[in-house]
Design a protein around this nucleic acid. Structure first.
Length: 430
DNA sequence: ACAATGGTCC
DNA sequence: ACTCGGACCATTGTA
């Protein structure tokens, strides 16, 4: 499906998607066995801190409500907010059973009642405690480490992680920082984190042969600032932070087939403005517009789309009588080649890295009974790999990982990898 | 046991 | 009316 890209400078290694999956399988098993070292004390101390705060918030919420109720129950929350407190439901999303109490909806009510803010904070903190701080320590094995299970059975070719899922460890905010401090390197070792910079945008630039985007990546300019300058019609050096943030949302929205409504919700602007931005975007990015059209047509005609390495996803949804289902099918057709190709590139890098790492000797003669220190891959998070390495090898292993990842395939644009290391996962991402 | 709701990540 | 792709998991409430 993408063989024409060979003439555009794309060098696709002679390997199929299925073969990539087979070859990455033993690498995944090795990563599961390796696991990642956990500092349980960091988790338990944070848990204690948050539980104190949560009980204060509980009292505050009950007081503002005038009664006790189960804060964790969306139905009881809706009953309280919209029946007893009679908060306005104009503009709020509905669920099958009633009014949504999801965070974006409650945020709209912040100015209407003093109960909203503590509820949002309660939700945030109890999420962290119940999903991460409590369960993670229970999964630490005798070696002090957590061993997830990786899978490859997804509709795009991405990998999954379960028991626990280490691909959704919090990263936003101060509390995300605190949790990531609990994922540590052993004595005299470091964690190295390496992530592809905007890999999906680079892939779509290439698959779509979008001239403007190709040039942007070749010249190394900030892609979101460039998009901002295009859709807001301002010089590149006059782009505000706010405009850049909006442009970033547009860039990612395109990958998902986002509508004007979706964009307006994401940016908190009106729908017409959102539509104008999208129109402006497709005006400039004719290649992307063509790609979107082509993927819809391809899926419609053949019933499937393909990634760069030939992974096929059947999209039966497109044939649905239900227009919502059919629209969802269109978005899958747009997104799957991009997301799937990114997954394939990461897997190729993992296969190559595993070979390269195993060529290196163990650094130490281990003291009696102790395992020798040597580099190994330990985590994979969609566009990021985390490895462990002896601290004296941090620089050389970092460099090796970066080079292998950047060279995994030759696209029409350069692949860039950001790499850093430190004593824990937080430090390794600076 | 299962569906619905909500929330975390890329 | 509905609206952003791909995952996993906790809690509530119903069957």
């Amino acid at each position: 499906m993408w063989s024409h890209l060979r003439e555009k400078g794309v060098k696709i290694p002679n390997i199929s998607a299925g073969e990539i999956d087979r070859q990455v399988e033993p690498v995944l098993r090795a990563m599961e066995n390796a696991g990642i070292l956990i500092d349980r004390k960091v988790l338990s101390e944070l848990q204690r801190r948050l539980e104190i705060r949560i009980s204060k918030l509980e009292k505050e919420i009950y007081k503002a409500a005038g009664e006790k109720f189960n804060i964790n129950s969306p139905s009881q929350m809706a009953e309280l907010l919209f029946k007893k407190l009679k908060l306005p439901i104009f503009d709020l999303k509905k669920t099958k059973s009633g009014i949504s109490t999801a965070a974006p909806e409650l945020s709209k009510l912040k100015s209407k009642h003093k109960i909203i803010e503590p509820v949002l904070e309660y939700r945030e903190l109890s999420k962290l405690v119940s999903t991460y701080l409590k369960p993670l320590p229970a999964l630490v094995t005798k070696d002090g480490r957590i061993h997830t299970t990786y899978g490859q059975e997804t509709s795009t070719g991405r990998m999954t992680s379960k028991n626990p899922n280490l691909q959704n460890i919090p990263i936003k905010g101060e509390l995300g920082d605190e949790i990531r401090k609990a994922f540590i390197a052993p004595e005299r070792m470091v964690l190295i984190s390496a992530d592809y910079s905007q890999i999906e945008l680079r892939i779509v630039a290439c698959l779509a042969q979008d001239e403007v985007m190709l040039k942007a990546f070749e010249s190394g300019v900030d892609i979101h600032s460039k998009t901002a300058s295009e859709i807001f019609g301002v010089p590149a050096d006059k782009v505000t932070k706010e405009q850049r943030r909006a442009a970033k949302t547009v860039n990612f929205g395109v990958l998902y087939g986002q509508t004007s409504y979706g964009l307006s919700q994401a940016l908190g602007i009106n729908r017409q403005d959102a539509q104008n931005y999208i129109d402006k975007y497709f005006d400039v990015h004719t290649g992307i517009a063509r790609y979107v059209k082509n993927m819809r047509a391809k899926a419609d005609k053949d019933g499937y789309v393909e990634t760069l390495f030939g992974f096929r996803r059947n999209i039966a949804e497109l044939k649905s009588e239900n227009w919502q289902t059919a629209n969802a099918g269109e978005r899958m057709a747009i997104n799957t080649p991009v997301q799937g190709t990114a997954a394939e590139i990461l897997k190729l890098a993992m296969i190559e890295l595993d070979k390269e790492i195993n060529r290196r000797p163990t650094t130490d003669d281990p003291p009696t009974g102790e395992a020798g220190r040597r580099p190994r891959l330990i985590l994979t998070v969609h566009d990021e790999l985390v490895a462990e390495a002896p601290e004296e090898d941090a620089e050389s292993v970092s460099k090796m990982i970066k080079e292998v990842m950047e060279g995994a395939v030759k696209l029409c644009v350069p692949l860039e990898v950001e790499v850093a290391y430190g004593k824990n996962w937080l430090e390794a991402k600076h």
